[in-house]
Amino acid sequence: MTDIEYAKRWADTRINDLAAHRALYAAPEDFCVETRMVDDHLGDTISTDEEFAEGLAGFSNKDQTNGLGVQQITVTEAFAGNGHVMIHWDWEVTGADTYRGLPVDGRTLTSKGSTFLQFDDNGKIILESTFLNENPLFQQLGLPIITPHYWEEGFDPASLG
């Protein structure tokens, strides 16, 4: 399996088959999954079967009517290294009632994300570090988030202050 194919299998099982997805990871407490800033490992780092099932359940929801939303992850790039791979992906959710508490009002939300996977000698994932780009999501929900292109020639950086 090539690295991009592995990345696609990782994404496909994440949203379609959580048991098959779990099989990609090492034994309980031999792996960590972190999908956002870690404020408290007890709530932000998945490292047991129970946390894996609870923390990742939302990805595989297929019911468009329960308000949880149906997600899609589409792999766009994979950068393979020695015992690791960095994956870029597109993300979409439809049918969600809320996003982080904000009303979605029937919108389809789209953005991009990245996932770094580190493997043990048996090819099992021992570390997942994932970040979703939430700025476009907040913008799609009407929040006044801005990302001025201050690196472009002629932009006045003082206007950022």
Binding site: D40, L42, G43, E50, L102
Partner: peptide, 16 residues
């Protein structure tokens, strides 16, 4: 403290 934005979080069995 932006209004209305919640933090997604599972609850570990050992959490206080």
């Amino acid at each position: 403290g932006y209004p209305g934005v919640h933090k997604p979080q599972f609850v570990a069995k050992t959490a206080v």
